[in-house]
Simulated scan of single mutants.
Amino acid sequence: MTRFGVEEEYFFLDPDSLAPVPAAARAKRALGDAEIAGAFTSEFLTCQLEYATSPAQTLMQAREQITAARAAIAEFAREDGCALGPVGTPFGTGDAHISPTTRYRDIARWLADIAGGHHVCGLHVHVEIDDPEDRVRALNRLRPWLPVLLALAGNSPFWHSRITGYRSWRTVLMRRLPTMGCPPLFRDHAHYRHHLEELIRVRAAPDAASLAWAARLSERFPTVEVRVFDSQLDPDDALLLAALTRAILTTEQDAGTTLDTDLIDATLWMAAREGLNAALIDPSTGEVSNARMLLQELMRLIEPQLERTGDTAFVRERIAHIRSAGTGAERQLAALRAGGVSGLARLLGARAVRVA
């Protein structure tokens, strides 16, 4: 069974204002001795922490790791007087303090004034594919489905204590970077490497690890790394996206319409704006469709692979839940409208470590 891994980024938030607070260094020290598989690492800002699972073969293995990690982080946060924020952007406003590492300071200098407002947390899914040429082909297959995945994954409707009107404001902020968005269509692995080296040469990315496409080949592992997702409100939302990602990347697909990169980028914007209500492009026909219909088409395409991994029931149940309760962004908006900032805080605290 194809192995995968999940990386989650989280905010530490003030429990009253839901503004980011610089608690990551304390969290790393507190979690250093935790007997949890995977690893806790610093992120770009001192209000952020990243957790990466160990490679998993089943959703249950990944769930055990993610829920244990979230529970440990949430316990630290309570003791520290802050709150865990599994969201793509924070509700409240805070100063940006760069994590004190040489690499992050170099990136901050490269970003210049962007660094001061780069409060973004994402979910990254790695899927192991041994052969480099197969990885490039899988990346090409994934490209036209990125907007559908983002439509499911929007979990950042707020910025500076305001409702933005977007389901994924994180996507809008990330679009300020020169390599954000849909990756190009590559002929082979050599073409991919040459393109990457050219981007580094012109300083559009300081290094390979700073490439900000919505999906890329990992530099550290033999994986395709999918980065289009906001950090997820609920662990099972993250697991759903991991299951869909693995199934798409490991499903051989009939040649459909090759969508231009700018068209995919435009529909990524629409998915960030409108979520599952977005008008998108059908990868098979090139015709205009919508996210809900394309999600059904995607399920038909990948169902054989979901059956092989035993993920079909979970995926169908979780998609039904999102259709009923809304994406993370919609659940956050509902909580704010019903109970104000305190209602939103209660939602974050209740959902961060929930196990379905």
Rank of each mutant, 00 (worst) to 15 (best):
P147E: 03
L240K: 01
A278E: 04
A30V: 04
N140A: 08
A23I: 03
W145I: 02
D113F: 14
P147H: 05
R141Y: 05
Q48C: 12
E330P: 06
A72Y: 02
A338G: 13
M174S: 11
M270T: 13
H97Q: 14
M60V: 10
P222N: 12
D134E: 15
A356N: 11
D113R: 15
F91V: 08
I322C: 04
F76I: 01
S284G: 11
S168E: 07
R351T: 12
F76H: 00
T251G: 03
H194T: 12
V202Y: 07
D282A: 07
I73M: 14
P222I: 11
I129D: 06
Q57C: 12
Q65R: 11
E225D: 14
G88A: 10
D311N: 09
T101Q: 10
H124T: 11
P178G: 06
T89I: 13
I302P: 00
M174A: 13
T251C: 07
S54P: 06
G310H: 13
R354H: 15
R308W: 08
T2N: 15
D311E: 13
H191T: 10
Q305I: 06
H321V: 06
V226K: 00
P22W: 03
M1S: 14
L13W: 05
E79Q: 14
Q296P: 00
L111F: 13
T267F: 05
L239T: 02
M299F: 12
L123E: 05
G328K: 01
D237Q: 11
R331T: 04
G328Y: 02
I73D: 01
R318A: 00
T312Y: 03
C121L: 09
P15K: 10
G38F: 04
T285R: 09
E43I: 09
G94L: 03
E50P: 05
A25M: 13
R29M: 10
L18K: 04
A153C: 11
G340D: 13
W269G: 10
L233H: 02
L294N: 01
L233F: 07
R3Q: 15
G122Q: 05
M60K: 11
H191A: 15
L295M: 14
L18D: 03
I114F: 14
H118M: 15
E252I: 08
L139N: 01
N277M: 14
D134M: 15
Y104L: 09
S42E: 15
A272D: 06
L249Y: 03
H160G: 07
Q332I: 09
A272L: 10
Y192E: 07
F12V: 08
S231K: 02
I322A: 00
V226L: 11
S218T: 10
L146I: 04
R70C: 06
L280E: 00
T267H: 07
Y51W: 12
A56K: 03
R220N: 12
P15W: 10
S324E: 15
L294H: 01
Y10T: 01
A208I: 12
D134P: 10
R308S: 13
L139C: 05
C121P: 03
A208N: 07
L233T: 03
T2V: 14
I264K: 02
